[in-house]
Design a protein around this nucleic acid. Structure first.
Lengths: 350, 350
DNA sequence: TAAAGTAATGCAAACGTTTGCAAAATACAA
DNA sequence: TTGTATTTTGCAAACGTTTGCATTACTTTA
């Protein structure tokens, strides 16, 4: 019985003795409807409390004015920051955003891709799971030429639009920074190598060591999901026996912060005894004591580029515009107290 | 040309020489379709790469299996935590979630409510803007009996389902705690009173003072948007002249953290010279030095209750189930170092 | 005043589902 | 076998829009 109040353009048409097509056109500001009619229609629409039905319009037009977004989790700084930007930018373009979290589960990601396809989103933005190595669940989008953009955690060997940070340079810069500040035995705590961006940071780390003629040792690098618990456990391993490292480059800030807490517990001074660099420039790095050096990834810029790329794809759905390409967002090292110390000459060996 | 690949149930029907109705029923596991037919249909659906069109189904059924969520911003701890819970819970119920941010702008909130209505969401969950005092933009939902649930920042005098924290008790507990730890001159930094929950916390603050026979002074309470910048400025005001307060109860953790940083800058010892209590139990309170006492609001519980309430409303759309009621989620004070100190007897005056 | 041109409106089909009701096919009983 | 009950399937309308094409209503010009 409650449904009696839902007005449609048919109601407007009847009320005004016009045809539905005229009403539809009037509401959409079609140029060949007279100004007077438009006015009448809009007034009546307001009077009746008419609300357009996006489902019906979407069905007819084959577009929903909705974009899907899949991120690992919304509670982590970097994806949250990007989601915010994307949401606000898309709003300006008149698009809605369906934000979904995969919780870093491959199965959930697959399920989400399918429901978002069913929802007939006009485009999909994804930062993949840590463990996504098979990308065939995105085929529906790619093969149907529905705009598809990946950011940050992006696929390897899958032709698609990609916007990522400069992770190689990030790893290289972070490590070089530690070396320049005097570190000679640097541990790297990395995410799992199934995720491409960690691979690149590791490559940057290695390359920095090499360039400064420092030995690379497999035992000085750890691969793990970068959670607080794992960080703590790894610290226990690292500091179970001497010699202690004099620097740690952690591939996220949660890990870096946890390392610092561990150091406090075992009375290791940061930065005097151990220097730490994190990744992402999470605001938390600034409020801990001492503040932690980190690698900024310019989330705002990345978010804006994602939306720009998406809108390009959306508007050029059938033109021959290239559906894939890779864009690299720069990084910047933000030096803070956790890696302070005299910049030492780096060419001479210890 | 790309559209040629989009299969529909009509294609399945033709392929199988069945009617579309049979195919539809088969896919929906309707009981009076034979098992053999169901099997055939599902096989063919898979073979053709059929994907249901949620828009069409939604139009026909007058439901979209989608819920809308409006929060001030997704990058703040509390709304982010709740959103995560809500999203994951809804997924279990087979619902999609459209997360939107109002950025604490009333105009944006109004706009979002309208587009979400147009999108024909099956329900709406809202934590309002700081400045929302007129709630008439929600009338469309309320009057059409579309499930509508508010949490945390909830309306006043607007009959609707509400799930909120125990803000009065939170304010009371936080203040009492400071008093018990020896504070006699307690500043309260509150959010704007347009938002109901701050009003209640203020009431709790006052009542605690009164109960311990401490004077309430208007000059010791500040109303502001609880940002980092505002917190810093307020600190400058507070510490521009003596006597300094010996305790501050801040209505969010960002403010509490900023106060602590300010204290470090002016060499005021926390907790010896000044004790601090925040609100929300943001994980950041735990990693700063010293860790900050805060009031936990049980976001997980609140999120779960929100979804439960929503699902109740959704499933009992036309039964006479009450569309409004208020639920209070408990709070708990988490005492940390920022308010440490001997528990002093509180009855005797200074 | 009629012809021709332009502006404004209407008709009807289509988008992809679901579902009440009718019809057909099968099973069961006599 | 025939009739009846039961299971399975099909027909067609409906959901609320949009849009190509046809039609009608106005202007303008000669």
């Amino acid at each position: 019985m409650s449904k009696r109040t839902e007005k449609t353009i048919v109601d407007i048409a009847e009320e005004l003795k016009l045809s539905v097509s005229t009403v539809s056109r009037a509401l959409n500001d079609n140029p060949n409807i007279s100004a007077r009619t438009k006015d009448k229609v809009k007034k009546m629409a307001r009077k009746l409390g008419y609300r357009p039905n996006a489902l019906a319009a979407g069905l007819r037009n084959n577009k929903s004015k909705t974009i899907g977004l899949i991120v690992p989790r919304i509670s982590m700084f970097f994806p949250a920051a990007i989601s915010t930007i994307i949401q606000n930018k898309l709003q300006e373009h008149g698009y809605n955003l369906i934000i979904c979290q995969s919780n870093d589960s491959y199965e959930q990601e697959v399920a989400l891709v399918n429901t978002l396809y069913s929802a007939r989103v006009d485009g999909l933005v994804v930062s993949t799971t840590l463990y996504t190595t098979d990308f065939s669940h995105f085929d529906v989008f790619r093969d149907n030429h529905i705009p598809l953009v990946f950011f940050d955690r992006v696929p390897k060997d899958y032709n698609v639009k990609v916007i990522k940070g400069d992770d190689y340079l990030g790893g290289f810069t972070a490590t070089s920074h530690l070396i320049e500040r005097g570190c000679r035995d640097i541990v790297h705590i990395s995410g799992p190598l199934t995720c491409n961006l960690y691979l690149e940071r590791v490559a940057g780390y290695k390359s920095a060591l090499q360039q400064h003629k420092l030995p690379f040792r497999k035992s000085r690098i750890f691969y793990q999901e970068l959670t607080r618990d794992n960080a703590w456990q790894t610290c226990e391993k690292i500091f179970a026996q001497k010699p202690y490292p004099d620097g740690i480059f952690a591939s996220n800030d949660t890990t870096a912060i946890t390392i610092m807490e561990y150091c406090r517990k075992i009375n290791l001074r940061v930065p005097e005894d151990l220097k730490i660099v994190g990744y992402s420039n999470d605001p938390r790095t600034e409020i801990v004591t001492p503040p932690i050096t980190s690698v900024d990834q310019y989330p705002a810029m990345m978010g804006e580029r994602v939306v720009a790329a998406l809108m390009e794809l959306v508007t050029s759905r059938q033109t021959g515009a290239p559906r894939y390409s890779q864009e690299i967002i720069p990084i910047q090292l933000i030096a803070r107290e956790s890696s302070a110390g005299a910049t030492k000459p780096v060419t001479k060996k210890k």
